[in-house]
Amino acid sequence: MVYLRALFITMLLLTTTFSMANSLDQLEKKLADLKGQVVYLDFWASWCGPCRKSFPWMNEIQAKYKDQGFTVVSINVDHDKTLADKFLQEMPANFSVIYDPKGKIAQQFKLKGMPSSYLIDRDGEIVSAHVGFIEKKKAIYEQAIKQLIQQ
């Protein structure tokens, strides 16, 4: 019995460490797959107000520029995945979502606020970043994307 429980706990620990490492691996793999494309990397959470406002816009740019080698990749930092899923039901995303419940990716990127967005060029280099989503700056955000695509 004790033996069984020890085994169970070891397995649990292994799976959690695995899934913790997993979010970082997932992103690495995703970015490797998207090499040669311009990527808009966005960190969001269900509890973040401006994130909600950014979703329709991200759907829009994804649709508008996908044929020119552009992809939106989002990273959800909700502790509880069910809250993220509930958000996505109200606010469907037509771009991919990587779940980072332990904040492993967020930690690596040293986020300064929510939402945080990064623009990655075709060589996989981060060229710009911004914190927050301000309605009035949508044109500026889009301009930066357009420029990078045309480079």
């Binding site: 960190f43 509890w47 909700d78 502790h79 904040g103 929510m114």
Partner: peptide
């Protein structure tokens, strides 16, 4: 907390 850990505080 870190900016991505505000799930409870944001309520």
């Amino acid at each position: 907390v870190e900016p991505w850990e505000r799930d409870l505080l944001a309520k």
